[in-house]
Design a protein around this nucleic acid. Structure first.
Lengths: 109, 109
DNA sequence: TTTATATGCAACTATTTGGTTGCTTTTAAA
DNA sequence: TTTAAAAGCAACCAAATAGTTGCATATAAA
């Protein structure tokens, strides 16, 4: 399909998926698919699909117990996102902003 | 369409767009659409579309000069991504991992 | 002023995405 | 052992996405 980091970025790009992930993170125990579904307006199958995407991104792990599948969040892969962003933090306030200023000034001149 | 943060996440979810953004960040000057296109295998129109997405996410600003549109990166909006990730860093090594261990242990018992 | 360059706009296409419903299978509970 | 619950699988659908091509327009250069 696509590389790991893109899977990860795509997983967190969907707002519903971010909400599901968040619900799992703050949950005091692992939640079954049905339990997760009860918290959202979409169907159980819809949740299943999102869970699969999150699982493939490494953000959710599943522990099967009988007929139930207990899902719990794993935030570790977000380190990759953090690392990606970190590279660009050095550009938050410096040269590129200066370039912007430079161009704006040359317009006025 | 969708909320600001989702636009931002979606903007960086596409690998080509991340590449374009990166190229703009490390460029020593603003680049025209044509200049950007020359660095990528997709058509100029394809680049234009990506630039528009990046612009709407606030990651690219454009300075029009005559018939040319000079694009430059603005990394600042990534602060929002950083903030989003930061909340979950507290879960990188603690309780959720413990839950995983707990469940694995109860399987063995 | 003619010509060439930079870009925009619009239509089209294939694939992916986010969602649905229906049915089956597995497992637990009456 | 019958019944109910949890989930998977598959097909389907509409909308969004990532890309294309063709043509028009604006601007700079000969």
């Amino acid at each position: 399909m696509q590389d790991k980091i893109t899977k990860l970025f795509k997983a967190i790009a969907d707002p519903t998926r971010r909400d599901i992930f968040h619900a799992l993170v703050i949950a005091t125990s692992a939640l079954s698919i049905t339990q997760i579904s009860s918290q959202f307006d979409i169907s159980r199958q819809g949740v299943t699909k999102h869970i699969k995407t999150l699982e493939e991104a490494g953000l959710v792990n599943i522990n099967t117990n009988g007929r139930e599948r207990f899902c719990y969040a794993n935030a570790k892969p977000l380190k990759e996102v953090s690392k990606w962003v970190e590279f660009y933090t050095q550009f938050w306030d410096n040269s590129l902003q200066n370039l912007e200023d430079f161009l704006n000034n040359s317009k006025d001149a």
